[in-house]
């Protein structure tokens, strides 16, 4: 956990920067750090559910940024969805997760540890083999995703779920 300020909003970048595109979460956190957003906590995580619970337990709003693998991948595609939605699908992250994110949400729900707003920004990964650096399509998605998050974090309160930009898809 690397919490920089203790307030009610947290962005959690999940992933392992030594597994290429799985590093999108930590890369987003690094970019957001440079934006100095007031009242926004930033944290990196390996996605282990109890750590996620600890990180978002005190937050009103938590945003999880993660890499995902899909059946027919379109690397760099950004998805946005609410994780409080009961139909949260079981999704596999890109690299470092002992239990999938759906389990973390279900565990948090069973223990009443879900933040009021819990959003997932998921980026489709192309390559999660060992190594450093994002592949070009995921690297290209990085700036767009950071802008999208800054808008999300500095714009009017968002309760509704849906794409904020033409690029973000609902899962």
């Amino acid at each position: 956990m690397n919490i920089e300020r203790q307030r009610a909003t947290i962005v959690i970048g999940v992933g392992n920067p030594y597994r290429r595109d799985d590093g999108i979460g930590p890369a987003v956190i690094e970019r957001l750090r440079r934006r100095h957003l007031p009242g926004v906590n930033l944290a990196e995580s390996d996605g282990e559910p109890t750590r996620l619970l600890d990180l978002w337990a005190d937050a009103d709003m938590a945003i999880v940024v993660d890499a995902i693998r899909t059946a027919s991948p379109r690397p760099g595609t950004i998805h946005r969805r609410s994780l409080r939605h009961p139909s949260t699908p079981r999704m596999r992250g890109g690299g470092t997760h002992a239990v999938d994110l759906g389990d973390a949400v279900a565990l948090a729900a069973a223990l009443d540890l879900l933040p009021r707003t819990l959003l997932l920004y998921a980026v489709e990964a192309g390559d999660t083999s060992p190594g450093e650096g994002l592949t070009p399509p995921v690297q290209a998605a990085l700036s767009e995703l950071v802008d999208e998050l800054v808008a999300e974090l500095t714009g009017p309160p968002m309760g509704a779920v849906g794409p904020r930009s033409t690029r973000a898809h609902r899962l």
Partner: peptide, 27 residues
């Protein structure tokens, strides 16, 4: 629920040591 909360509390104490000395709980 209470059993799992006990597990979470125990894990958190470990994390507190890691954060106090290591600067953060992971890496």
């Amino acid at each position: 629920r209470r059993v799992v909360e006990r597990g979470l509390a125990l894990k958190k104490v470990g994390n507190e040591i890691l954060t106090t000395i290591g600067g953060r709980a992971i890496h």
